[in-house]
Design a protein around this nucleic acid. Sequence first.
RNA 1: GCCCCCAUCGUCUAGCGGUCCAGGACGCCGCCCUUUCAAGGCGGUAGCACGGGUUCGAACCCCGUUGGGGGCACCA
Length: 487
Amino acid sequence: MRTRFCPSPTGTVHVGVMRAALYNWAYARHTGGAFVVRIEDTDPARNTLESERHLLDCLRWLGLNWDEGPEIGGPHGPYRQSERSEVYRDVVARLLESGHAYESFSTPEEVNARRAAAGQDPKLGYDNADRTTTDAQRAAFLAEGREAVVRLRMPDADLTWHDHVRGEVRFAAGAVPDFVLVRGNGTPLYTLVNPVDDALMGITDVLRGEDLLSSTPRQLALYAALTDIGVAAGTPRFGHLPLVMGEGNKKLSKRDPQSNFDVYRDRGFLPEGLVNYLALLGWSIAEDRDVFSPEEMAAAFDVDSVNANAARFDLKKAEAINATHLRALPVDEFISRVAPYLAGAGLVADPPTAEQAATLEAIAPLAQERMIVLSDAVGLLGFLFAEDVEIDPAAADKQLGAGAGEVLDAASAALEALPEWTTPAIETALKEALVEGLGRKPRQAFGPVRVAVSGRTVSPPLYESMELLGRERTLGRLAAARGIATG
RNA sequence: GCCCCCAUCGUCUAGCGGUCCAGGACGCCGCCCUUUCAAGGCGGUAGCACGGGUUCGAACCCCGUUGGGGGCACCA
């Protein structure tokens, strides 16, 4: 099997597009085939090199390594369509020569006028009228300075195929007009270039979004022509993947912020977490299981079992899956992944100093199970790497109101006198002072202390955090919180 | 408007004629654990769009209806 991913390098990277890449990758890996990447940059107005680099970087980050394609080459290169003009020119010449394609001089206005004259809806589009253009007419058009587009002559037969995910699909003969392969200015269109390259690159299975389903009949016709002139060895199998939907009930569009792949990466989703979630959008590994590694996916993935329903992107579930992967990370691995986020926020040096590394190592196991994405560490652990802590106003409202002053005073007094600064000693002292001494319920006793020390209502376990913070900083923070406590 | 695709809990899904008064996960709600919040454990909530067939038997097959989605460029 040979599958491919052929993005157009424009703007941001879309999660739906990456899901398609993932399925292609997984299918190739599952079958022991090859995964080919090709850059479809035939629209110079919209394509940028920067965008291409970013796309490839996202693929690499997700772990979707390709066997042939940009940057690594391969036997069917070049893998960038902007570098394949001669190939297309040659194919078009042969298509024209064999009569599968023809020059078409009608302008869109003329087509519409003909439709209107016949009392038809102009939405019907091109009417195949130029199939019969004579040499004399052609010469006249050329003399007028007209440019011709090149169109494929569609066969007069139903077009059907067996789709990997949808089964038999059929389009009636005549449903698709002769479509344009080459612009008037001579540059080729996606409609030509995509099947030509798939043919030339030996792609056996085309897995792509359902939004391309209705362009399949055209491609089938082109493949037949290409096979006839010896460019293609046959027609690939197709599999049309369910669309990824957004919040509403519409295809997740590029304009939708949720569709931007970068935001997940930047927030600190793990590649394996995102792979896992994306895989679930239309496929399941087993009846009672939905957490798995990319390798497990590749081992189990089969396109024929992909679900045909459109799938809504559910951030909550994506986060839950990611959190599971995060917790499953070995601690040292977790530390090395989280450190860049802390460094990025200016909390630790890059790399962390010996002291910071020691703190990180001590707190990591406690922090790991409280996080969803890596960037959560910034808020959760920031208090350990700064002299002072900024208290979250909402947390202050909640915990530094009535009765907090008394708690903070008692905590300070108990901790000041502590002979040794260890987690068990802190625990004992605080419980004695607050729970027994003041008769507070644990949740009321420790809430204000937690906010004073960490600045938040959610933090790693309290006593351990205090030990790591040291007596001086802890007492300083209790005093600072006492200053703003209202009760 | 035309063509095509789709239809199981709020969401993602399992189910491919009987083993399903429909299983898992996220979410949500309880309870337990507990120093907060989480995490973890336990339990609960909620679904086969509708109508006809076919069949001894239908979530599964067929037809229709309704609903949703996608596509109809000299974009990709």
